[in-house]
């Protein structure tokens, strides 16, 4: 019980959970309104009903837009909260240790990242819907939101479960233990040098496919690129960032002592992936090849610069 209170009373955790809960209440109200709207939408197009639907949809759209924008920032807050908890969880030196205190940690992080991507895509769809002025994406948008809500609800339950399962008495492995085995954990049993070459090659492929507007190639190469990026960040570039080739950790680079370079790396990667997906899925984003090139280049530049500085 003492351990539980030290987790839930930690300011960053309590703020994070309070905001998640608050957003969930808002989104729950919006969920109910969305169902009402979708049911009304099926009826005959009588001016009064359409007007009601249109007005309600404004409310739903704004509540969802604001809530999702806040969720984007809350992810950073979540990471910050975990970093703070590292000082009270024995053995945890950074986010890695806290995430590994139980089986829910990494699942929660992955869920948050996936929801974040979908939330960003929803915001894009919403923008396209507003521009169309004919509501052609309206129904799609509402249904997409309903699915997103279910994910957000599950995320909250998982958050509570994760935080309440953190044991502040039991020591955990920190990143130096978890990420210590290099060769056996690399994909396709490739050497790190080969992976790094593949990383740069995929980067070129991404830029070219974006420029040439080859959507399928872009989509597939994005998926592989993200997968490879994780490994090269942890097992190659991480060593240069930490000044220690044995230090493999995706999270320590988010700390102040490394100039928060992790945020630049991960945020630029996220934005790049977001634009790639948006470019592939939405016609309205046909000019997104420019930010795609920009953000992927920024991401690669930040990592490459660490080889020299």
């Amino acid at each position: 019980m003492v351990g539980l209170s030290s987790i839930f009373l930690s300011p960053s955790v309590s703020i994070e959970l309070f905001l998640e809960f608050f957003l969930l209440i808002i989104l729950s109200y919006t969920f109910i309104q969305s169902i009402i709207i979708l049911r009304s939408y099926k009826k005959e197009s009588i001016a009064e009903i359409q007007s009601f639907v249109e007005k309600k949809s404004y409310l739903v759209s704004i509540l969802v837009s604001v809530s999702l924008l806040v969720k984007v920032v809350l992810l950073l807050f979540f990471v910050y909260a975990l970093d703070e908890l590292a000082s009270i969880v024995p053995g945890a030196m950074c986010v890695t240790g806290v995430l590994n205190t139980n089986e829910y940690g990494e699942v929660l992080l992955v869920l948050k990242l996936v929801l974040l991507l979908f939330a960003s895509l929803w915001l894009l769809l919403h923008k396209a819907d507003l521009h169309s002025n004919k509501g052609i994406h309206f129904k799609k948008k509402m249904i997409f939101f309903l699915l997103l809500y279910i994910g957000i609800f599950l995320e909250f339950i998982l958050s509570i479960t994760f935080f309440s399962s953190i044991d502040t008495q039991l020591p955990v492995s920190c990143c130096s233990v978890k990420y210590i085995e290099l060769t056996s954990s690399l994909p396709f049993n490739l050497s790190i040098q080969t992976l790094v070459s593949l990383f740069y090659a995929l980067y070129i492929l991404l830029i070219v496919s974006a420029y040439k507007k080859k959507k399928i190639i872009l989509f597939l190469s994005t998926l592989i690129f993200v997968y490879i990026s994780y490994y090269v960040i942890v097992y190659y570039f991480g060593g240069f960032i930490y000044g220690d080739s044995s230090h493999h950790c995706p999270y320590c680079m988010l700390k102040q002592e490394y100039s928060y370079v992790g945020y630049f790396i991960y945020i630029s990667l996220f934005i790049s992936v977001f634009y790639s997906f948006g470019f592939v899925i939405f016609d309205a984003m046909k000019y997104a090849y420019k930010p795609i090139i920009l953000w992927y280049s920024f991401f690669v530049l930040v990592l490459t610069s660490k080889l020299f500085f």
């Binding site: 209170s5 009373l9 300011p11 309590s14």
Partner: peptide, 13 residues
């Protein structure tokens, strides 16, 4: 940390 968290948490609540 725990002490600060406890006092801080109560305050925050």
């Amino acid at each position: 940390e725990n002490l600060f968290n406890y006092k801080g948490g109560v305050f925050l609540a």
